[in-house]
Design a binder for these strands. Structure first.
Lengths: 166, 166
DNA sequence: CACAAATATCTTGGCGCCAAGATAACAGAC
DNA sequence: GTCTGTTATCTTGGCGCCAAGATATTTGTG
């Protein structure tokens, strides 16, 4: 198997800091670096459907919620891992683009309801298909069994974060 | 095995879009989400040694280069995956903090040499040890064999990116 | 040598993010 | 009903990033 960047990186560390065990990097640095590459892939895939990654994240959360594709900013916060100020700005821009609509909740007038427009729904549906097509391409090097093994191993690492409120 | 966020996410998609095969997400969304959690962990680990993640990235590249811990901004670009403008700003701030020094290259006066100071070396060495200690903790749920399997599978996915100049 | 192209770095402008605090509305105790 | 604390959202200020272009220097060609 050919060397990747992380192999070169750990080799350099072992040369400079032979007293340390840098093996944890072999797993975790690969996760971080792969994620950075995936970010770029996502950006490219969504761009073909006129969406930014952060736009997709919000629209997808609404789409997953099912009819009537409507959630409050507070619920969207939890799903997208951003702060409330960021979410306000996101909904502003999505509203300006006509991808979502925003209206005050009549029952609780502090609250707001963000709803997918028909245009928003079409956009996110198309973008999702593009994303999945590209992800299938990226995973082509792995057989079904390896994918299962990989996702199980990753779940083990993620679980402590998803359980505990980080 | 308990459900993680990605399990819930794919379940929601399968309910709303039963026509699509969302299984690629089971691998790649876990990679992205785990990476986000790791970012926070890194930030916390480095903060104990007075460093920001982006500071560590630059200092670590210089440290890995070995004596005399000196590289040009151009080389640092390649190692840290940021643009030249970003690197200029980073070196500015690191210089202001006394973690690196910057001087013009005498042989090629377009070029610059960024060198780790003694303070920078001490900082990055300490931060690295803290990072590794924390990473070992995060990997505690996995045996040696699983770690090997995981890093091999991840290498397979990363290699196409590291080879091709994306 | 002179000039065009390449190279290395820096500058500028704009965007998205977070942290912290401000605002508005609700809910419970009395 | 009124006060106090809580909740939901928005506003402000600052930071780090990128893209694109500017500047300075070197290299190659004739």
């Amino acid at each position: 198997m050919a060397q990747d960047e992380v192999d070169r990186l750990t080799e350099a560390w072992r040369h400079e800091r032979p007293d340390l065990d840098v093996s944890p990097m072999e797993v975790l640095s690969r996760v971080s670096r792969l994620a950075r590459h995936l970010d770029r892939e996502r950006r490219a895939a969504f761009a073909e459907h006129g969406l930014e990654p952060w736009e997709f994240d919000v629209l997808a959360a609404l789409r997953r919620a099912g009819e009537p594709y409507e959630l409050s900013p507070g619920v969207l916060l939890g799903q997208t891992l951003v702060t409330s100020g960021t979410m306000t700005a996101r909904v502003d821009k999505l509203t300006a683009r006509g991808l979502v609509s925003r209206r005050r909740d009549e029952d609780d007038r502090r609250a707001v309801r963000v709803r997918l427009t028909e245009f928003g729904k079409k956009s996110v549906d198309a973008a999702l298909e593009g994303l999945l097509a590209n992800e299938r391409r990226l995973l082509a090097g792995l057989g079904a069994e390896d994918r299962k093994r990989l996702s199980d191993l990753l779940r083990t690492l993620v679980l402590p974060f998803d359980d505990a409120p980080s």
